[in-house]
């Protein structure tokens, strides 16, 4: 497991030149978001309980959590193509649990840049008292599990359907919708964002906790994290079982 992680680290460093340009690009992207929220709230003031500081915390949470998921467990976004391209067979031959190996096998340093940015943004704009740091960390961890579990479940669809456009759209959907405060949506859309596409738990719920800690919301966030991670792992494992038994059957 540690060896896998190490191999992934080395691989990601192999092309250092493009690493720095991509990292710069990522920072530009994040700074553009900061600029957008600053300009937006400059004119608008406050929207449904969200002000500039909340939007910046939203950005900090989503970049940290997505940076972790897409950076450290980089394969989670590629689960569908890993399955469709037969890369999985190589992982199956190893003694380590397939899912663990798969998740540890790819590091995307560019997204790690996002993670660093998110932490920096919290440190600079988030008034990091010890209590707030703890809440931020708790929020980010729940966001990581919700986001990662969702992407894993989405990718595992490929066990049934082959590589599909649904997975790609689902990724964009959860990521983009999590970049905006959930309260700008109303009615049924809002309901969807708390359930089917759980983007609310990836950013808005942690920010709400930072704003004023409420044990009920915290429990809801933790529950969503647990549920999403379970759905992700279970759909991967059941898919994998189908896959291996199917493969054995074709071989026979």
């Amino acid at each position: 497991m540690r060896a896998t992680f190490r191999a992934a680290m080395l691989e990601s460093w192999a092309n250092r030149r493009s690493f720095w340009t991509q990292l710069a690009a990522m920072f530009v992207n994040d700074i553009a978001w900061v600029a957008f929220w600053v300009l937006f709230f400059e004119e608008v003031g406050e929207v449904r309980g969200w002000a500039r500081a909340d939007a910046l915390m939203l950005l900090a949470v989503i970049t940290t959590a997505a940076g972790f998921v897409l950076g450290v467990t980089g394969n989670v976004r590629r689960v569908a193509s890993v399955i469709a391209d037969g890369e999985l067979d190589a992982a199956l031959a190893l003694p380590t649990p397939t899912l663990v190996h798969l998740l540890a096998r790819r590091i995307e340093p560019v997204n790690i840049g996002d993670l660093v940015f998110g932490c920096l943004l919290f440190a600079l704009a988030g008034d990091p008292t010890p209590a707030r740091i703890a809440v931020f960390a708790f929020g980010v961890v729940t966001a990581v599990f919700v986001y990662g579990g969702f992407l894993l479940a989405l990718g595992s669809l490929a066990f049934r359907t082959g590589r599909g456009e649904v997975g790609e759209l689902g990724f964009h959907a959860v990521t983009m919708l999590a970049s905006y405060p959930v309260d700008i949506f109303s009615g049924p859309t809002k309901f969807v964002l708390y359930t089917v596409v759980p983007s609310a738990f990836v950013s808005s719920v942690p920010v709400r906790l930072l704003d004023s800690f409420d044990p009920q919301w915290a429990a809801l966030g933790a529950g969503a994290a647990l549920l999403s991670a379970t759905i992700g792992v279970v759909s991967f494992q059941t898919g994998l079982r189908r896959y291996t038994s199917g493969a054995a059957w074709t071989r026979a």
């Binding site: 937006f40 608008v44 003031g45 406050e46 929207v47 456009e165 964009h172 905006y180 700008i184 859309t189």
Partner: peptide
């Protein structure tokens, strides 16, 4: 289909943001 789907997602998110901003303003 992916690009139209993606377009509808962004459009839905950004228009919701601006509509609620106008309403708050």
């Amino acid at each position: 289909v992916v690009s139209v789907g993606f377009y509808l997602l962004v459009t839905a998110a950004v228009t919701s943001l601006w509509r609620s901003a106008a309403e708050a303003h």
